[in-house]
Write a protein that binds this DNA or RNA. Structure first.
Length: 272
DNA sequence: AACTAACGCAACCGCAGGGGC
DNA sequence: CGCCCCTGCGGTTGCGTTAGT
């Protein structure tokens, strides 16, 4: 049972968009605004499903989109946010103005995950194992099919704390400005110069929460970031400040007693 | 120059949540 | 309360491009 997929309708165009289709979509949205994706194709004169139109607009045609050239700062931020949030691409994208979840997801899959993998291999078996553990856990969290499989196949699947995925729109996710009172001193040196222990404390607390090594590869990630950026002339930026605040808050709540509940609200707070 | 493998990106798919009725 | 529709998210696929042989 259930609805037929919207893109299964016979006669609809699929595959790459033509410039004419792009123009039609842009013109329509400029006149009528976003939304009502279901009815948009008809009204705009497009032989596409609404889903496809939405995707094309959000990932490619929006005027505020930055394309290509991921900066070292963005690269660093993606790695750190991913270590914190997992594959929550929309959340991560929300902290990177002009970037789309799809772009970040692609960037991660094609660049960063491989770099992490290479780094793990270099660091030896301990790190490799930890990275694999974490990868598996993140995958479990974000892929229900796999999770079902795992549920059947493994009696004692490790669990990590996973705040519910939250629907995010770019306008609802603003980079918070300063005034944070959270303890951010552990990052005081900025990227490439930070206290080498700040990720470790996350790790230790997470181990306490869940009794496993779910986020153990944070160390590997940190090493990766440190190595990649330490050789560059790379002064502290707004992104660094933002990270300081965010991870400071993160650490603070992890040190509190009811951290499991607070972790959920922390992720919520990222969207405030 | 021709072929093949690897890579990167755009697009698609399936599912879940929220809201209206 | 339950159903249906719309929307958004994350995983995956397909294909064009580039690099290597």
């Amino acid at each position: 049972m259930g609805r037929a997929p919207c893109c299964s309708k016979v006669g609809l165009h699929r595959g790459p968009w033509t410039t004419r289709e792009d123009a039609l979509l842009v013109n329509y949205i400029q006149k009528h605004g976003e939304g009502h994706w279901r009815s948009l194709p008809n009204k705009a004169g497009l032989l596409r499903c609404g889903k496809s139109c939405r995707l094309r607009w959000l990932n490619y045609l929006r005027p505020d989109i930055k394309r290509g050239n991921i900066t070292p700062e963005e690269d660093d931020l993606i790695i750190r946010l991913h270590s914190l949030l997992g594959n929550r691409w929309s959340l991560i994208a929300g902290r990177l103005p002009g970037r789309t979840d799809n772009e970040i997801k692609n960037y991660w899959n094609s660049h960063l995950s491989k770099r992490l993998q290479a780094r793990s291999n270099k660091n030896g078996s301990k790190c490799m194992k930890e990275s694999a553990d974490r990868k598996r856990n993140v995958s479990n969290l974000n892929n229900k099919k796999k999770q079902k499989k795992d549920d059947e196949g493994t009696a004692t699947r490790t669990k990590i704390h996973a705040p519910k995925a939250i629907r995010v729109s770019p306008s609802s996710v603003n980079i918070r400005t300063h005034n944070s009172t959270a303890g951010s001193s552990s990052l005081a040196g900025g990227v490439g110069d930070h206290d080498d222990n700040w990720f470790m404390s996350d790790l230790e607390v997470d181990k306490n929460i869940n009794g496993d090594l779910a986020w153990a590869s944070n160390r590997c990630l940190d090493d990766l970031v440190h190595d990649d950026l330490s050789g560059q002339n790379y002064s502290p930026s707004n992104i660094d400040n933002m990270l300081e605040e965010m991870f400071g808050e993160y650490q603070q709540l992890l040190n509190s007693e009811n951290h499991a509940q607070l972790l959920d609200s922390f992720v919520d707070s990222l969207l405030a």
